[in-house]
Nucleic acid binder design. Structure first.
Lengths: 93, 93
DNA sequence: TATATTTATATGATAGTATATATTAAGACG
DNA sequence: CGTCTTAATATATACTATCATATAAATATA
C-alpha cells in the first residue's frame, strides 16, 4: 500500500512537478500532497485515481496470476528473450 | 473508479463469497461491503487493498502507455496472433 | 538578510468506518 | 397459504480520519 504512494512520488518527480503544481492540476490543496507523500494519511480511492491520472497512470486491479507479468512489463524488464513472457491460456470455449 | 468497485463485486461472486464471508476474511463489518458494492462510499486505499488481496487481486499503478496491453492480458484477449501484443521498447542503455 | 520556492503543520467541516439493528429472500413445513 | 427460520444484504448512529483552508517552516539563491 505504501508502494502505491512511493510510485506516486516517483511519478511526480519524473514529470518534474512540485507538490503545488500537482495539487493545482489535481484540484487538491498542496498540503494533502505533502501528507500523502509522507504516508501520514490513508487516502480515498477517488483521490488516488485523480492523482494517478494527472501523472499519466491508471489504478487497476490485477488478478494475482498476472502480477509478475504485469510488473515485468511495467518495469520493462526486457532481455529475457529465451521464453515468451506471456502466451494466452488455451481456453478457447 | 466505479470500475474498480464493479471488479471487486465480480471477483467476490467468482470466488463464491457472500458479503459476510468476505467481510470476515478481510476483517471488516459486512455492512461496509454492502455500502461499498452499492457505490455509496469512497473507500480508502487500505480498504481497497485489503479486499483485493482476499479476492486474489493486487492494486497497481499502470503507466498510461501500458494500459491497453495490461487490459488485454487481464481480459485474456487472445487470438491476435498476427502481431505481438508487446515487445520491449528499445531502450538498452 | 531578503526573497522566492517548496514542503510541512494546525484546525474545523465532511465522509468512512465500527457496532448494532433492520430489511429482504428463500426454503421448510404445518 | 401463512409464518417460521435462516441466510444474505441493507440501514442507523457514534467515532475517527480525510479533506479544505490557512499558516508556518524549511530550502535555496542572490
Amino acid at each position: 500500500m505504501e508502494d502505491l504512494i512511493e510510485e506516486l512520488l516517483k511519478a511526480r518527480k519524473e514529470k518534474g512537478f512540485t507538490q503545488s503544481e500537482l495539487a493545482k492540476l489535481v484540484g487538491l490543496p498542496q498540503g494533502h500532497i505533502s501528507s500523502i507523500e509522507q504516508g501520514k494519511i490513508d487516502i480515498r480511492i477517488s483521490t488516488l485515481v485523480q492523482i494517478a491520472r494527472i501523472l499519466d497512470h491508471e489504478v487497476m486491479l490485477i488478478p494475482r496470476q498476472f502480477n509478475s507479468l504485469v510488473k515485468a512489463i511495467i518495469e520493462e524488464k526486457e532481455g529475457v528473450e529465451s521464453e515468451p513472457l506471456w502466451q494466452p491460456d488455451k481456453e478457447e470455449d
